[in-house]
Design a protein around this nucleic acid. Structure first.
Length: 278
DNA sequence: ACGAGCGCCTGTCGGC
DNA sequence: TGCCGACAGGCGCTCG
């Protein structure tokens, strides 16, 4: 499920609460339960359980695809990877099937880290930079302007899509929104970063921001059994739409593999890069 | 510096 | 119906 818009949606629901559940802000963590040990990245289980008990949730923030919760003493960091989710419910309600870490909160609530595929990870650290330090800029960072983005693209020499998905380059894009943004910007996923003109870079940056903003407004994308309640899947232009008409020109969407990931694009709007033509 | 391949996991779907 | 491979929103590692 989770790329930046889905993590942002979860962040907002945890921070503000919903009609069914309260905000976790200001709540004390009575204790935690580790139901799948490998979901914990660090510290060791015993230290984790001891250290987290009694800490208060001071904030609910996000950095890239990480959920970052400042606690009274440490930082609780969560990465949902492919199938993670976080829910809040009343203590005493029946347990769900894929709960991996449970946080019991005062008074009578619990926050569950749920993760069917078990790829997600939780950290409890005093210095979040230890985990987040290598991340690239946030897509909405005001200091990130067209020229700076152009410079970034020219500081590497690789294919556009793997570059945009590299969290050290830019934090937050995953497989879906990269394809969507590239389509919006009319750029081919295999185009070389060094072939990008300043105008292309500006268009791509705007496309990334518009795509993410629209997805956040729809509460993210829900596909298959990994369901969060968002409905941006109704507005996807290319992702998962092989052989269907491009919303811009009607040309059937093509699926290829780039960096081992399914990649969808319009062969008419997103022109095959110069260097790949024979 | 970059890309391919693989491991980590469970669930779903399409084809036979 | 049942089985089996392909595939899935991510990322870290090794090896060329």
């Amino acid at each position: 499920m989770p790329e930046l818009p889905e993590v942002e949606t979860i962040r907002q629901s945890l921070r503000l609460g919903t009609p069914e559940q309260p905000s976790i802000l200001g709540r004390k963590i009575i204790n935690a339960e580790l139901l799948w040990t490998r979901s914990l990245a660090e510290p060791e289980p015993n230290e984790f359980l001891r250290r987290i008990s009694g800490q208060v949730v001071k904030g609910v923030e996000r950095r890239g695809k990480f959920l970052t919760l400042p606690l009274s003493e440490d930082w609780l960091l969560v990465h949902l990877r492919m199938s993670g989710d976080i829910t809040v419910g009343a203590i005493g309600e029946p347990h769900g099937t894929h709960e991996r870490v449970m946080f019991n909160l005062e008074p009578g609530w619990r926050m569950a880290f749920i993760d069917p595929r078990k790829f997600g990870r939780v950290w409890l650290v005093s210095d979040p930079q230890k985990v987040l330090g290598a991340l690239g800029p946030e897509p909405f960072d005001e200091k990130l302007d067209d020229f700076r983005f152009y410079q970034m693209l020219h500081s590497v020499n690789r294919r556009l899509k793997p570059t945009l998905m590299d969290q050290a380059f830019l934090a937050g894009l995953g497989n879906i929104y990269t394809d969507e943004a590239l389509n919006r910007a009319r750029l081919h996923p295999l185009a070389s970063t060094s072939s990008i003109m300043l105008e292309d870079a500006g268009r791509l940056l705007r496309a990334i921001r518009e795509t993410l903003q629209a997805a956040i407004q729809r509460n993210g994308t829900s596909i298959d059994w990994v369901y969060r309640g968002g409905d941006f899947q109704k507005y996807l232009r290319v992702y998962g739409r092989k052989d269907q008409a491009c919303p811009e020109c009607g040309t059937p969407i093509v699926k290829i593999v780039v960096g081992q990931r399914g990649t969808y694009y319009c062969p008419f709007c997103q022109v095959v890069p110069e260097e790949m033509r024979i």
